[in-house]
Structures are given as structure tokens and as C-alpha cells.
């Protein structure tokens, strides 16, 4: 008979949780942050207010209003002609100067736009839609910057970031989950605000629009602008996150942001105008504005005729995207590396 020896039982140890669990927890953490809820609530209120203000300030171009505007336009043309005739009969006119130069050319109805005589004016989706999307993208960038900053700032101020390392010791994973959640959340906010703008513009157009058919290619340009606006929201959110993760304090990150935008960029524009194409705000605008941002840069150089040399520079959508992407990646990346290497106190 042989004895069977069983080794002493060693309790099996449990590894860290899965990445999915970390992602879910981070998502819940972000959604439960009160300040983020307040920011999103304020954004919704602002959207309602803007939509309501638009409805109060725009009015549809009804046939009656168009007829009245047409009559005003015609009256303007006639009054202009009366004034011109009086000018032409003035005996004091110098004979050697062309009369059109003294009394102006004859005015026709085509020289004026009917909308000038409509008050309130109707909303024009074709003319104002893309510009509105750009404005919304700028406002959303501020919102997502704050969301990214306060999300990670709260972790540092409560030192929950350190407590989390008792549960997941792989720091790049911890940071990766947070970055992924901020990226998705800010992108969703960007998409939501662009959709909200589309809804607002649609409501204005339907209720108080000019009724003008949209030009060919309008929707493709509009959708592209929406997409780039959402991308800017993502970059801004990650920048807020990355900057706050570097300085480990929301207030300090906002201070750094303010100093950069209010002081550094102004100083660069004043003292080194040729650097303007590489500023963050320039590239953020260049990313979203349809066709890119045209810059007119007045340099310190003087040409042969004694005039200041002016440079025209187009910050393309692509340049804006690359510059914003690289800056965001560097700021976030440095924060991740430092978090992974530094002692967690």
C-alpha cells in the first residue's frame, strides 16, 4: 500500500480586476461627479436659452413681410434717385469731375439686399449654420476642458488616485482607463452639443427661417464642421485632463490655462506675430472653421516702399488637427509617464 502525499494547501491568490471593471468604475465615477453634472446642466440651460432667444430675435419672411420690405427697398431706391437728380442739377458742380464720382452712380434694387429691410430678420441656415457650429465648438471646448480637468483634479485632491493603486497596481492601466473614459465622454459631449446646435438651427429655420433653398454641398460642409467641432471637444477634454494630471490640482490647471491663453498668446501675438500660426487657439480655430483659418499677420518688417510686410497664412483643418493632436498627446503622455514612475505619496 502506498501512501499518497498531498502537498500543503496554498490558498490561491486573486489578481487585480479586469480592465472592463476599471472602465465601468471610472465611467460611474465621472457620471457621479457633481461638478460635471452641474456643468452639463448649465450647458443644457444655455442651449434652451439660446434657442429661445433666437426664436424671439428671428422672424420668418412671410409674403406680407417680404412685400413690405420690397416696398421699402423700392422707396429707398427712389429716394436715392431723387437725391442724385438734385445733385446733378447743382450748378456748383465742377465740370472737370465725372458726375458719378460726385453724386454717385445710379442705384438699382440689385444693389441692396431685401434682408436689410426685414426687422426682425429671418434666420438663414445656409449662411449662419456653419458659423454657429464653430461658435458651439468653441464653447464646448471650454466645457470639456473643465470636465477633463475636474475629473482628474478631484482624484488628486481627494487622493483617491493613490487609493485606487491598492486595487490596480498597474499605473498605466489606471491612467489608461481614465483617459479612455474622458476621451469617450468629451467626444460624446462634443457630438451632443453639435447635434443640439443642429436642432436649434433646424428649429430656427423651420419657425423663423428665410426659406432659401440650401446650396449644393451645404450638408457635407456642415457635417464636416460638426465632426471637427466634436474632435476639438475631445482634444480640449484631454488637454484639461492632462494639464490637471501634471499639476495635480484643478485650480492650478485652470490658472495655467488662463495665463497661457490670456497672457502668453497675447504676448506672442504682439511680440512675435509670425508665431501666430502655431498658437493653440489659432490651431483650434483652424481645425474647426470650414476651409481653415485665414490669418493676416502684420510683421515688423518694412518693405522697399516703407510699408509693413503683411503675410497671409492659411491654417488648414489638417494643420489645426495635427497641432492640437500632438500638443494633447504630449501633455497627456508626460502626465502618464510621471504618474507611472514617481512614488505615490
Amino acid at each position: 500500500m502506498s501512501a499518497v502525499l498531498t502537498p500543503p494547501s496554498v490558498p490561491t491568490t486573486a489578481p487585480a480586476g479586469r480592465f472592463g471593471g476599471l472602465l465601468r468604475a471610472e465611467t460611474h465615477r465621472l457620471r457621479a461627479r457633481r461638478f460635471i453634472q452641474v456643468l452639463l446642466g448649465l450647458a443644457v440651460l444655455a442651449w434652451i436659452a439660446v434657442t429661445a432667444l433666437g426664436l424671439l430675435n428671428y422672424e420668418k419672411a412671410t409674403p406680407e413681410r417680404l412685400a413690405a420690405a420690397q416696398a421699402q427697398l423700392q422707396e429707398q431706391v427712389e429716394q436715392n434717385e431723387i437725391g442724385r437728380q438734385q445733385c446733378l442739377t447743382d450748378p456748383s458742380l465742377p465740370p472737370d469731375v465725372p458726375v458719378d464720382q460726385l453724386c454717385g452712380p445710379p442705384m438699382t434694387a440689385e444693389d441692396m439686399e431685401l434682408s436689410w429691410f426685414l426687422d426682425p430678420t429671418p434666420y438663414s441656415l445656409s449662411e449662419e449654420g456653419p458659423g454657429g457650429a464653430v461658435s458651439i465648438a468653441a464653447a464646448t471646448a471650454v466645457l470639456t476642458f473643465l470636465i477633463g480637468a475636474t475629473f482628474v483634479g478631484a482624484e488628486w485632491s481627494s487622493r483617491s488616485m493613490v487609493a485606487l493603486l491598492f486595487w490596480e497596481t498597474r499605473r498605466p492601466r489606471v491612467m489608461g482607463a481614465k483617459i479612455a473614459v474622458v476621451a469617450v465622454a468629451t467626444l460624446l459631449v462634443g457630438v451632443a452639443t453639435q447635434l443640439a446646435w443642429l436642432a436649434t438651427a433646424g428649429i430656427w429655420q423651420a419657425v423663423a427661417g428665410d426659406g432659401v433653398p440650401l446650396p449644393d454641398g451645404f450638408w457635407s460642409e456642415m457635417l464636416a464642421t460638426h465632426g471637427r467641432g466634436a474632435l476639438l471637444a475631445l482634444f480640449a477634454g484631454l488637454l484639461g485632463f492632462g494639464l490637471t494630471n501634471l499639476v495635480r490640482n484643478t485650480g492650478a490647471a485652470l490658472g495655467v490655462g488662463f495665463v497661457y491663453f490670456a497672457v502668453v498668446e497675447s504676448a506672442i501675438s504682439g511680440f512675435r506675430p509670425t508665431w501666430q500660426p502655431w498658437l493653440l487657439t489659432t490651431n483650434a480655430a483652424g481645425l474647426v472653421v470650414p476651409g481653415g483659418l485665414e490669418l493676416t499677420i502684420y510683421t515688423d518688417e518694412i518693405d522697399t516702399q516703407g510699408n509693413s510686410v503683411v503675410i497671409e497664412h492659411l491654417v488648414t483643418n489638417l494643420q489645426g488637427g495635427i497641432v492640437m493632436g500632438v500638443v494633447t498627446a504630449v501633455v497627456v503622455g508626460v502626465g502618464v509617464v510621471l504618474f507611472s514612475r514617481r512614488d505615490a505619496q
Binding site: 489578481p15 480586476g17 468604475a25 460611474h28 491598492f166
Partner: peptide, 30 residues
């Protein structure tokens, strides 16, 4: 680490969340 529980110096939690929610978030992580 899934078999190690630790309380080091002061407890570190989100001040604005309830005790239950703080624990639920940690449970979800693990």
C-alpha cells in the same frame, strides 16, 4: 493584489460620494 486589503494612514475616498457609492466603485474596479 486581489488578495490584499489595505488601509494606509487616512482613508482616501471621494468626499462628495456616499460611503456606499465609494465602496461600490471600488467593488466594481475589482
Amino acid at each position: 493584489i486581489g488578495s490584499v486589503g489595505a488601509l494606509v494612514e487616512t482613508p482616501l475616498f471621494f468626499p462628495g460620494f456616499s460611503g456606499r457609492r465609494n465602496l461600490q466603485l471600488l467593488a466594481e474596479t475589482a
